[in-house]
């Protein structure tokens, strides 16, 4: 590699990566402000209340609506935090834990992920549609196949 080429590549990397970070910052900062507004005005509780109808369709109990909403909006780590806390307190059934996890692995942090990909040129509606559909389908299939609560191994709770 010649010296000129190295200088050119460093310049290209520097400006290109700075531009990418700027593109994403322009999306991420307003989203975080919006999310704080949602938290401050308790929008999450209201969404979770509505999500109860949806969790029933998926074969989940009403208690799963809140962790589901948190995970879908804020991401896997936050969702898992709520799920672990609720599992410890015994609010969530083992069945719910399983189904929630499988819903969330394919569909989490949808606002941030979708907008960030839109910022670099992807089709957002298609992206969001695919994720939601896949998450609903996998959870439905699993909820039909998953044994009833009493037949599940007890190891789940003790692992946490």
């Amino acid at each position: 590699m010649s010296f000129d080429l190295i200088i050119e590549l460093v310049y290209k990397s520097f400006t290109g990566s700075a531009k990418s970070v700027y593109t994403i910052a322009r999306v991420v900062i307003p989203i975080m402000v919006l999310m704080e507004a949602g938290r401050a005005y308790r929008v999450l509780d209201r969404i979770a209340e509505r999500a109860k109808r949806f969790t029933r369709v998926l074969g989940l109990s009403g208690e799963a609506a809140f962790p589901l909403t948190v995970g879908v909006i804020f991401g896997l780590a936050f969702g898992a935090g709520v799920i672990i806390q609720w599992a410890k307190e015994g609010t969530l059934k083992k069945r719910d834990l399983y189904l929630l996890s499988f819903f969330l692995i394919s569909c989490h942090a949808v606002i941030e992920d979708t907008l960030v990909f839109v910022a670099i040129g992807a089709n957002g509606a298609l992206l969001l549609g695919c994720r939601l559909t896949a998450a609903v389908l996998t959870t439905l299939v699993l909820s039909k196949r998953l044994p009833l609560e009493r037949d599940l191994p007890g190891s789940l709770q003790s692992k946490i």
């Binding site: 040129g121 992206l127 695919c130 994720r131």
Partner: peptide, 13 residues
């Protein structure tokens, strides 16, 4: 953009 959309769907899963 078409390729980015396909990669975005794959990566988001």
């Amino acid at each position: 953009t078409r390729e980015i959309t396909i990669m975005a769907v794959m990566l988001s899963f």
